[in-house]
Amino acid sequence: MTANLQRNVSETDDLLRLTDVHTHIGQYHILHGVSFRVPRNQVTMLLGRNGAGKTTTMRTIMGLWPAHSGQVHLKDRAIETLDTMTIARSGVHYVPENMGIFAGLTVEENVRLATRQNRFNQDRLTWVFGLFPALEKFWHWPAGQLSGGQKQMLAIARAIIEPCEILLVDEPSKGLAPSIIESLIRAFRELKDADTTILMVEQNFRMASTLGDHVAIMDDGCIVHESDMASFVADKDKQASLLGLSMEAHQ
């Protein structure tokens, strides 16, 4: 009885769950059985060195690379065989590694494209402008003329303009100045306070440890560690052995 109850809780608690996912790109076998969970209303950090397979994992969840075997569950629904469009429509919103801004469209058009009815919900828009004031200022600019940080803000704004089940964010801090990273952290914290479920790939350990509730670490296409963030932050030995120099470099 108790066991049964517990399983129910854990099932409903995980918004996204990967089980033994294998992904091939061309002739290369990239993911070798990836399993981890993304708890609801929490921020899960996917960490690991370059080439560990983090971006491939994100793209596999999004259906941009087909999973060769294994399951991806969104709530209780298996989504690994669905196409990208259907996955996106089921509420998985994605901020890709290179932001994927449409440079020739204005900021407004970029965001409007992500709305469902081609119209803005004023409250939602005000909220997004509150998170990223720069966007309001440059609302009618071609997005290609924004700075790197502003493009990242635009990419995130595009992903949250409609309510979503889960937000996938691939390395938002990449190539940004520390002050911009601070403002991104503030924005993500606000999203977190609004109970958004987030799965984020990150190399910046400060950002990861401040924002994360849950953590999964990848190496060579496998998950080598999964726990809550607090216990991982406390365990210095584990950090050293799993993240090595990369963590210190960022600290």
């Binding site: 469009m85 996106a88 449409f102 469209l105 494209l113």
Partner: peptide
């Protein structure tokens, strides 16, 4: 410009 992103925004 980028059809992959258009797909990830949920368009056919």
């Amino acid at each position: 410009e980028n059809r992959e992103i258009v797909k990830s925004l949920g368009f056919n």
